[in-house]
């Protein structure tokens, strides 16, 4: 986990008032309280993502909540699928797993 100061060193071009607004909107959710935030790796990656969405994909802030919420849903689903995959690997006999893979056309990876 890193502090705000380290964050600004780590991420080139990040504006303080942008970050504060994103945290205020809960688009970024660091640990700790205002003035003493701590950012995990996923927070840093998310800030980069938001900057890329804004700068490279020219997504304006009013559209960001929709985009982020869709992304969050997508990643939720993918995380659950991974969990499902792990559960299948642990509980389902190899033979059935093979049949599953066959049926899915090798798509469950």
């Amino acid at each position: 986990m890193i502090t705000v100061e380290a964050l600004f060193v780590e991420i080139h071009g990040l504006q303080r008032q942008d970050l504060e607004r994103w945290i205020g909107n809960a688009w970024v959710r660091p640990d700790g309280d205002p003035g003493h935030y701590l950012f995990r790796e996923i927070d840093v990656a998310r800030i980069r993502l938001i900057m890329e969405l804004r700068e490279h994909l020219e997504i304006e802030e009013p559209a960001l909540p929709t985009v982020l919420s869709l992304l969050d849903q997508l990643y939720d689903l993918r995380r659950r699928l991974r969990g499902l995959n792990a559960a299948l690997e642990e509980t389902v006999p190899a033979e059935i797993r093979e049949r599953l893979l066959e049926r899915l056309g090798g798509g469950l990876s």
């Binding site: 909107n25 809960a26 959710r29 995990r40 790796e41 996923i42 927070d43 990656a45 998310r46 980069r48 993502l49 909540p65 982020l68 919420s69 992304l71 969050d72 849903q73 990643y75 939720d76 993918r78 995380r79 991974r82």
Partner: peptide, 24 residues
């Protein structure tokens, strides 16, 4: 990339259903 974290266990932090107001 963000995906590296979001798909793994850390992604729970931004889970859609655990979000505050406006995030489901």
């Amino acid at each position: 990339g963000y995906r590296h974290y979001a798909e793994g266990a850390p992604g729970q932090r931004y889970s859609y259903s655990s979000g505050p107001e406006g995030f489901g």
